[in-house]
Design a protein around this nucleic acid. Sequence first.
DNA 1: ATAGCTGGCATCCTTTAGGTAACTGGCATC
DNA 2: GATGCCAGTTACCTAAAGGATGCCAGCTAT
Lengths: 116, 116
Amino acid sequence: MPAIQPDQAAVAQQIRHLQDTLYVVNGKWKLPILVAVHQGTSRFRDIQRSVPGITTKVLSAELKALEQNKLVVRRVYDTSPPTVEYTTSPYCATLQTLIQEMIAWGKNHHDRLREE
Amino acid sequence: MPAIQPDQAAVAQQIRHLQDTLYVVNGKWKLPILVAVHQGTSRFRDIQRSVPGITTKVLSAELKALEQNKLVVRRVYDTSPPTVEYTTSPYCATLQTLIQEMIAWGKNHHDRLREE
DNA sequence: ATAGCTGGCATCCTTTAGGTAACTGGCATC
DNA sequence: GATGCCAGTTACCTAAAGGATGCCAGCTAT
C-alpha cells in the first residue's frame, strides 16, 4: 500500500480551512458591509449609502447572514418609530487583520495595474 | 455647501480597495487552487485531485482567470506528449499572507463552532 | 490490442447570487 | 393631505457560477 503523504494531507487540510473561511465571507458584499459597520455606520440606510451599489434586498439578506455567523449584532430599540442598530460583534474583530490585508492588497493591485 | 467628510471618504476608498481584491480572488475555487499550485502541484490532473470536488471545466476556467491576473504561469513543454506545468508567479507571493490569514481564521472558526 | 493516462474542450443543465421594482405602516415634515 | 424617511419584504427576473457527462489525440504500460 502507498505511504500516506503528509504534505498532501496538510495541504488538503489547509484548503479545507480556507473553504471554511470562504463560506463565511464569500460574495461581493459581506466584507464591504463589515467595513462600513465596523467603522461605526449602524443604521440600515446609512449602511446602504456607505456600500455603493447595494440594494435593500441584498443588504437585508447579507446582514441576516452576518448576524447568523455572529459577526454583526442587530438591536431594535423600542422607540417610535423603532430604531434598528447594527454593530460588529467582538468576534468580528478577529477578521480585522484579514480585512486590512485585503484592503492593502487591493490598493497595491490597483496601483500596479495603473502602471502598465 | 456641506463639508466634505474625510472619514466617510476614507471608508469609501477602503471599500473600493476591498472590492478590487474581491474581484480577483472571489469565488469558491481561486484561492484553493492557488494554495495547491503554490505548494508545488503543477500538473492539471494533480491540481484537480488536490482541490476536492472541482471539475475539469471549472478548473480550466479558473486557471485561465488566474493566468490573466498574473497569479499563475502556464508553461507548455514541447515533449511528447506535451507537458503543461502551472506555477505561481512571484506576484502571487504577495497574496500569501492573506491566504495564510484566511487559513488560520478558518481553522479557528471551525474549532469555535465545534465548541458550541 | 486494450486499457489508462495526459490536458483539456463541448454541450447541456441546475443552482445561486444578485438586480429591479413595487409596496408596507408608522411617523415627521412641509 | 401630499411627500418623504425609515427598515425592511415580496415577487419576479437575469446572469453567472458551477456541475455532469462525454469526447479527443497521443502516448505508455500490460
